[in-house]
Design a protein around this nucleic acid. Structure first.
Length: 271
DNA sequence: CCCAAGACCTGGCGGC
DNA sequence: TGCCGCCAGGTCTTGG
């Protein structure tokens, strides 16, 4: 489900409700996520104060005095703040309860997400060690993309979605960024000039920032920590619009598959 | 090493 | 209405 803007929206939504609060209990109703959820979480975290919630790529890192808890939302995961007496629905797999009578509730129908204890050196963990730069940082720039793309035959769309190259960009925003920068998603990454990467970098940053400002993209059921949907869907130019007219030239948008992911683009505007 | 396909899951939708 | 196949915001693992 969530790409960087949705994860960031979630982080912003839940932070004011639970940061600084003492954790009282962890209830694991369904431990079978992407990897089994440790049964010891409650024992480890009971009485610990949640110090901060950070984001790296699409991962959320919950900082406690004794270490970090990692949460990834996979394709269909979400985190919400609910009151103690809240009814438990199907797929509400984990509750993290706080002294303030509030619960951080992890819901995930497809169970592709992850809840993992990382200890005190989170960035050394296998999942975080080899990630590329944050897209909204200065380390993500045209030179970086140009340099890493040389001799790559991979399509630019897959290159852009490779978290080792740059983090946070998933299928929606890759489609959108390539449209707005006028690049055909099938173009080999290694054949794109530095100047075009300049444009692509600027557009990626802009699209992600706008999406964050709108609270992310809600396609079916994404909600931020406060339960509200994201409104960026109204600004999508190509994602989910195969067969419909291009917003720029009115030509029919084409839908193809690249590495199993649906890719929509305009033959006229993207070359 | 590089890249594509497969795997992991559930649910919603369109077609018959 | 009911069943079937296909599709979905991610990413690790496998195999060519």
């Amino acid at each position: 489900m969530p790409e960087l803007p949705e994860v960031e929206t979630t982080r912003k939504g839940i932070t004011p409700h639970i940061c600084g609060q003492k954790l009282t209990q962890v209830n694991i109703r369904q431990p079978n996520l992407r990897w089994p959820v440790s049964e010891n979480l409650a024992y480890r975290l009971q009485g610990q104060t949640l110090l901060n919630i950070e984001r790296r790529a699409k991962y959320l890192l919950f900082q406690f005095p004794c270490g970090y808890l990692l949460i990834h939302l996979g394709m269909s995961g979400s985190l919400r703040i609910v009151p103690y007496n809240s009814v438990i629905a199907k797929h509400d797999h984990i509750d993290i309860c706080f002294e303030s009578q509030q619960i951080l509730r992890y819901t995930d129908p497809r169970r592709f997400g992850a809840v993992l204890w990382l200890g005190t050196a989170p960035l050394q963990h296998k999942l975080l060690r080899n990630l590329g730069p944050e897209p909204l940082s200065e380390d993500f720039n045209a030179q970086h993309l140009y340099q890493y793309s040389r001799n790559k035959k991979q399509a630019i769309k897959q290159f852009l979605m490779d978290q080792k190259i740059v983090t946070g960009v998933g299928n929606i925003y890759a489609n959108e960024a390539l449209y707005s920068s006028g690049i055909n998603p099938k173009t080999q990454a290694g054949r794109i000039a530095q100047q075009r990467y300049q444009k692509l970098v600027a557009v990626v940053k802009q699209v992600l920032q706008q999406a964050i400002a709108e609270g992310g993209t809600t396609l079916r059921d994404f909600v931020g920590g406060d339960g509200k949907p994201g409104y960026f869907k109204q600004q999508l130019h190509v994602y989910g619009r195969g067969g419909e007219p291009c917003h720029g030239c009115q030509e029919t948008l084409v839908e193809i598959r690249l590495s199993g992911r649906s890719s929509v683009y305009c033959r006229h505007c993207q070359r």
